[in-house]
C-alpha cells in the first residue's frame, strides 16, 4: 500500500537541461510568461504570449529535427501548457503563488473551524440539489450561479489583499474557501447539464 505525498509539479530531469537563457526548464510559470510574479495577470496578454511560445516550441516545429530536440520540444511545450493552465485559473494561480512562497496548499484542515462558512456551503449544496424540484429551475439555477460567482470573486479580492500585505496564512485559508466555490461552480455546470438532458 502506498500513500500519496502533496503533489509537486516538476519535469523529470528538468534541472539537468540547459538552454540559452531565454526560457529555462527551471523557470517558474510567471518567468515563462515574462510577467511579474503577482496575483493580477492580464489574460489577454497571457493569451498572446501563449500563442507566441507555442509557435516557437511546439513539437510540430521540430518534426524534422533530431530525436533529442523533438523530446525537448515535447517537454518544453508540456511546461508551457501547464504554466498557462495554472496562470489563467484564479484558484490554481492563487495556490501556485503560495507554493512559490513555500506554503503547502494541499492541506484541507484550515477550513473546518469556520462554522459560518460550512453552513453556507451546506445551504448552497442543498439549494443546488433542490433545483430539480423547483418550479422555475432555470431561473433558480441562474440566481444561484450568480450568487456563487459573486462570492468566488469576493474571495479572490480578499486573497489579493492578504497576499499583497504578506498575510500568507490568511491567504491560504482563502484559497481553501476558493477551492470549495470552484467545486460548487462545477456542480452548477453538472446540474445544468442534467436539466438540459431532462
Amino acid at each position: 500500500m502506498w500513500r500519496e505525498l502533496p503533489r509537486i509539479d516538476e519535469l523529470p530531469n528538468g534541472s539537468q537541461l540547459q538552454s540559452d537563457g531565454k526560457l529555462k526548464f527551471s523557470d517558474n510559470f510567471f518567468e515563462i510568461f515574462a510577467i511579474p510574479q503577482a496575483w493580477v495577470v492580464d489574460l489577454n496578454g497571457l493569451n498572446i504570449r501563449y500563442r507566441a511560445l507555442q509557435q516557437e516550441f511546439h513539437p510540430d516545429k521540430y518534426s524534422t529535427k533530431s530525436q533529442i530536440d523533438q523530446r525537448l520540444a515535447v517537454q518544453m511545450t508540456s511546461l508551457i501548457n501547464q504554466a498557462f493552465e495554472t496562470l489563467k485559473c484564479p484558484l490554481k494561480r492563487a495556490q501556485y503563488l503560495l507554493e512559490l512562497s513555500n506554503i503547502d496548499t494541499d492541506q484541507e484542515t484550515h477550513i473546518t473551524t469556520d462554522g459560518n462558512f460550512l453552513m453556507q456551503q451546506i445551504e448552497l449544496r442543498e439549494g443546488l440539489q433542490d433545483i430539480f424540484n423547483h418550479k422555475e429551475p432555470w431561473e433558480m439555477l441562474e440566481r444561484m450561479r450568480r450568487e456563487i460567482e459573486d462570492i468566488y470573486l469576493n474571495l479572490q479580492d480578499s486573497f489579493q489583499e492578504n497576499y499583497q500585505k504578506g498575510s500568507l496564512g490568511d491567504a491560504l485559508n482563502i484559497t481553501a474557501k476558493m477551492q470549495f466555490f470552484s467545486k460548487l461552480l462545477i456542480e452548477v455546470e453538472n446540474v445544468e447539464a442534467e436539466l438540459e438532458d431532462m
Binding site: 509539479d9 519535469l11 515535447v74 501548457n81
Partner: peptide, 15 residues
C-alpha cells in the same frame, strides 16, 4: 487539456 502535457506526482512508501 491541451497536449503535450506532463504531470508529476510524488508517492512514498507505506511500510
Amino acid at each position: 487539456t491541451t497536449i503535450p502535457i506532463a504531470k508529476a506526482q510524488e508517492f512514498t512508501t507505506f511500510k
